[in-house]
Write a protein that binds this DNA or RNA. Sequence first.
DNA 1: TAAACCAAGTTTGCAACACAAACTAAGAAC
DNA 2: GTTCTTAGTTTGTGTTGCAAACTTGGTTTA
Lengths: 105, 105
Amino acid sequence: MKNKTESNGFPKIDKIVHEPARLMIMTFLYVIDSSDFLFLMRQTGLTKGNLSSHMNKLEDAGYVDIEKKFIDKIPRTMLKLSKKGRKAFKDYRNTIIELFKDMPE
Amino acid sequence: MKNKTESNGFPKIDKIVHEPARLMIMTFLYVIDSSDFLFLMRQTGLTKGNLSSHMNKLEDAGYVDIEKKFIDKIPRTMLKLSKKGRKAFKDYRNTIIELFKDMPE
DNA sequence: TAAACCAAGTTTGCAACACAAACTAAGAAC
DNA sequence: GTTCTTAGTTTGTGTTGCAAACTTGGTTTA
């Protein structure tokens, strides 16, 4: 059986992914693949300072790629999950699904 | 569609349940129905202070019933999910499962 | 050219949280 | 009467999430 790293059979949870704001961010990025900063800010409802700091956490973990460029002379920060980030998200999802899957109603 | 309380379609997450240590506690209690303090402590690997404070959080939320009694003159604290707690756990599970269910690989 | 504007931050301050270690209480066993 | 056990509470530390204020660097407008 996979993901059962604790001796009690309870899976280890990746706290970087697990935190609700970041789970929301990663879920969006997983589905839409790529987004700019402002769009993600509006979608998630996070303040920019808040979103910025979460993006830093995700970048520190190597879970997102952040690309800053200029479009029509306006700065735009493009965000997407890195390969590692997509894997981390999938692993998290599988861990949680497996945890709940065979549970009685 | 249920559980989509935010305008962006992202479900609201019950932080009481979501926190990893409590998710572990509630998962155990959901499956084994009832447990004493020490057993749960050993199963979860939490220190007693830690487990105690989490149980307080869960009790404050009305999610567990705590029954203190004596078995053979030894104090024993029995823990189980309340009706509200079982519902909160189920809701949480359904919310998460629904979030991940229709997501592409 | 100065003022106002915008994106995308950083910094600051605060409150909540998790966690471990130390301490406590109260009865049981020796 | 001291030591053991259960089941805590208290305390201290460090981390986190969050919003609001401030910053930077380039852009448009008056």
